[in-house]
């Protein structure tokens, strides 16, 4: 798809928000924010590594934004996204090179461990509300504050859809670039990549930092949508959920990440309403169903077979990893 078509698509989805009922707006905001972080996992997964600790950057972005908002009164939504992305990205730049030397299960476990260390530290920090967390004020946009709930929800929806959309376009361009193809090569055979004169560690580190930027921005959205942050942001189940979205989506289509994220939120919400005692079961059956009947993810519903040959090799890998989680 041409990037201009994709930009038009983002604009159309944003405008479509005017027609959506109010409750769907906030649900879509959360879905877009989850899609953003899962997109980061897909970016990283192309190097053959799955991060089970994206909650670390998610929480870093969220806490960074929340602390700056409360200390200096920064309420602008776009500025908060940039702050969140910067917090996540900086942390990613520090951790990425250290962790890039590992791969496979060791990589996954190390990311998980780091996020749980952060979680433990946050729970102990009573100045930040400990496990209860703390609240922040509602966001504004370019000096406008929104008091009407629907307008406020639409503003957040629009910002999150546009940011996630552009992140998706950037990811698509990245996937097609030389660097993106080299990332795939790292997964296939990193020794050979090294012999070609490229640094596999460097490629993994850069992809890791990109994933961290996405996660930080996503943390900022989650914070803006719920006006409250607690250490749960860094907990392993939070990270696990993002990996699930990535598995549901498969790595064939960037749009699939958004669709998967939205589907997960809808299933969760309705099962919670109609089956309050067994909603986890419904969620589990849904995930199993997708893994069994769409092993290449929701994206395989509309990605044509001609691309199958190209990607067939990498998908079972991702599915296996997801099942193991």
């Amino acid at each position: 798809m041409h990037p201009l078509v994709m930009i038009a698509l983002v604009a159309a989805v944003t405008l479509f928000g005017r027609a959506l009922p109010t409750w769907t707006l906030s649900l879509a905001t959360i879905a877009a924010s989850n899609a953003l972080i899962s997109l980061g996992i897909v970016v990283l997964a192309r190097t053959g590594n799955v991060s089970f600790g994206q909650g670390l950057f998610f929480a870093a972005g969220g806490y960074g934004v929340a602390l700056i908002a409360n200390a200096w009164g920064l309420t602008d939504a776009v500025a908060q996204v940039i702050v969140g992305a910067a917090c996540g990205g900086l942390l990613g730049l520090v951790i990425g090179p250290l962790i890039a030397r590992y791969s496979g299960i060791f990589f996954g476990m190390l990311t998980l461990a780091l996020s749980m260390v952060f979680y433990g530290a946050l729970v102990k920090t009573t100045a930040l509300g400990g496990s209860d967390g703390f609240n922040v004020g509602r966001p504004s946009l370019f000096g406008m504050s929104f008091t009407d709930p629907r307008e406020a929800d639409f503003m957040l929806y629009a910002v999150s859809v546009i940011v996630t959309g552009f992140a998706g376009i950037a990811a698509t361009i990245l996937f097609r670039s030389e660097f993106g193809l080299a990332s795939l090569a790292v997964r296939e055979n990193n020794l050979r990549v090294e012999y070609l004169g490229l640094s596999a560690n460097r490629i993994v580190s850069i992809n890791f930092a990109i994933a961290a930027v996405f996660a930080g921005a996503s943390g900022a959205f989650a914070l803006m949508a719920q006006r409250h942050i607690d250490p749960q942001f860094a907990y392993w189940t939070t990270s696990g959920e993002f990996v699930f979205v990535a598995v549901l989506a498969g790595n064939q289509s960037v749009a699939a990440v958004f669709v998967a994220s939205m589907a997960l939120e809808l299933v969760r919400s309705f099962s919670n309403l109609y089956l309050p005692n067994t909603w986890q079961l419904v969620l589990g059956i849904f995930l199993l169903g997708v893994i069994l009947f769409l092993p290449r993810g929701i994206g395989s519903l509309w990605i044509r077979d001609r691309r199958k040959r190209r990607t067939a090799a990498d998908v079972p890998l991702a599915a296996e990893r997801g099942a193991a989680s």
Partner: peptide
């Protein structure tokens, strides 16, 4: 009746759903 389990993010979303949907 809905379940409170699942973390604060989910609760915020479900609260909105209860009121708005």
């Amino acid at each position: 009746i809905i379940d409170e389990n699942g973390g604060a993010t989910k609760q915020v979303q479900e609260l909105r759903n209860l009121y708005q949907r």
